[in-house]
């Protein structure tokens, strides 16, 4: 990692350290792939991983999201929890990370629409910090 990225991450961690307590987050909440999005327009999506999967009944089905592809083919019975989504889905030199954002949107929303549950509109996930 070059120094700029390191500095940015450091800067982010510091600011997160200052901000998170004031947002009264639980520890369970995670901000998705924060490092990948350097240019942020909307508030970050705070995602309670365990609660979501409990409600959705997904405890055993990690690969539904954490899938694994090889040569463009889905590898059955393999999952990728140890990787960040951006490792595959992020583009280099794209500060807006349009494709990565689209990947997240599709992953969440398509499922929510299909199951008729969960947030589907922009603001329902990208909640404004009050």
């Amino acid at each position: 990692m070059n120094t700029t990225v390191k500095q940015m991450i450091l800067l982010f961690l510091i600011s997160a350290g200052v901000l998170i307590p004031s947002f009264s987050f639980c520890d369970d909440y995670m901000n998705i792939d924060e490092e990948a999005f350097t240019k942020k327009q909307r508030p970050f999506v705070s995602f309670n991983h365990d609660e979501h999967n409990e409600m959705a009944g997904l405890e055993e089905d990690c690969a539904l999201c954490h899938h694994m592809y090889e040569d463009g083919k889905l590898v059955e019975d393999e999952s990728s929890e140890d990787m960040a989504c951006s490792e595959c889905h992020a583009k280099e030199n794209d500060p807006k990370q349009m494709e990565l954002a689209a990947t997240y949107h599709k992953r969440c929303r398509e499922c929510h629409v299909e199951k008729k549950q969960g947030p589907i509109t922009c603001g329902a996930c990208h909640k404004k910090v009050k």
Binding site: Q41, R42, K96, M98, E99, A101, A102, K106, C122
Partner: peptide
């Protein structure tokens, strides 16, 4: 607007210049 362009990206895999929100 970003929110529209990202929807286009989601559906058609193409995107273009976006404005700050």
């Amino acid at each position: 607007v970003f929110a529209h362009v990202v929807l286009i990206e989601e559906s058609f895999g193409i995107h273009w210049f976006t404005l700050p929100d």
